[in-house]
Amino acid sequence: MAGDNAVQAVGSPTIFGINTSIAVTLALIAPIIFTLIRYPDDVSLSWNEGRGGFIFAMAFIAAELIGIKTGVSKKKFIVVLALAAMTIAYFAALPFGLRDSIKQYGIENSVALIDSWVWMWDFVVMALFVGSSLAVLFGKRWYKIAPAGAIYLIGSAAILSLDAFFPYDTLGPLQIIVPAYLQIDQAVIRFIDQNILDIGRGSVASARDNLLVLNGLHGPFALQVFWPSAGVHSMIIYTLVMLAFLLKMDMPLRRKLIYFAIGTFGTVTVNVVRIIALSLYALVVTTKVQEWEAFHSVAGEIMFLPWLGIYLAIVMFTESKRMRRLKATA
């Protein structure tokens, strides 16, 4: 039965002769692909230095939409294509004065970090596009079908807004965990020095409040750590994505809480490992600020996003296996 409402179809539904899941996926990632091609120099994996987050949003969208058996009407698909064209127009207009206008508005309103303010609007626009497109295609049930990409973009925009308005340690509550992370880092680095690397530089790591002083093979190196570098942004994004993911999963509340707790512990562990890796990089590899910053800018996403993807895949595999077993028993 055809109509404007999404319908469950037997087999693989098509639209304009194309598999619906593939057509919908391509429509939703078209603006992302445009930005990657049009602005390749802005594709940085650092969360606050470019549009690298779009790549991960695209992966979430594709993972959830490719293979779905839900049909959509041609009218709804055309609306999504129109929204995609409008979104592409926004990104195409950025070099022709739009970006300068956004930046100037931030300056006039005393935004603390202008770069984060500018990047924030890219993620806001992309989140609005993906979220509204999913709502058009699947109605009120969109969050049960493919929420991860939209939630990831919303979370990234929220983190950039916090960084723009409350940089460094101005947002006290988010800074609370930093001293604890640095104390763990100090203990682990000293253990590695005494039992594995034998750097032999006296006090190789000393942490106090949000200050970490390292003394390695290439001399001293001091770090002042603020909440974004401690991985608070990854914890917020994990919380949003995981809650959206668990919301659409058909499982008892107790199992959802267990999965969420395990994922929280894993994310905290990844953040601690990241800080340790950054410390070891300064102790063993280099203390040159530019080279260290290059590693720092990508280390978080390289560790966090694969962990999140793998953990979500494990949860899906475990629950699919459990559901098959329950059906077989029934």
Rank of each mutant, 00 (worst) to 15 (best):
F77K: 00
F77Q: 05
F77Y: 14
F77D: 11
I78K: 11
V80I: 01
V80M: 04
V80S: 01
V80K: 05
L81K: 05
L81V: 14
A82P: 10
A82M: 12
L83S: 02
A84W: 01
A84I: 04
A85I: 04
A85G: 10
M86P: 03
M86K: 00
M86A: 11
T87G: 02
T87C: 15
I88Q: 04
A89I: 06
A89Q: 05
Y90L: 01
A92D: 03
A92C: 02
A93M: 09
L94P: 05
L94M: 14
L94T: 04
L94C: 07
P95K: 05
P95H: 03
F96A: 07
F96W: 14
F96H: 04
G97H: 04
G97E: 09
L98S: 07
R99K: 11
R99F: 11
R99T: 09
D100W: 02
S101A: 15
S101V: 08
S101W: 12
I102T: 09
I102W: 10
Q104C: 06
Q104T: 14
Y105A: 15
G106C: 10
G106H: 10
G106P: 06
G106T: 12
I107C: 07
E108F: 10
N109A: 07
N109L: 13
N109G: 02
S110L: 11
V111G: 07
A112I: 14
I114T: 14
I114C: 04
I114N: 09
D115P: 08
D115W: 13
S116A: 12
S116P: 04
S116H: 09
W117E: 00
W117H: 15
W117K: 13
W119L: 03
M120W: 01
M120Q: 01
M120A: 11
M120H: 02
M120S: 13
W121P: 06
W121T: 00
W121M: 06
W121A: 06
W121Y: 14
W121R: 01
D122F: 12
D122Y: 11
D122A: 07
D122V: 01
F123D: 07
F123Y: 15
F123C: 09
F123V: 02
V124H: 08
V124P: 10
V125Y: 12
M126D: 05
A127R: 02
A127V: 08
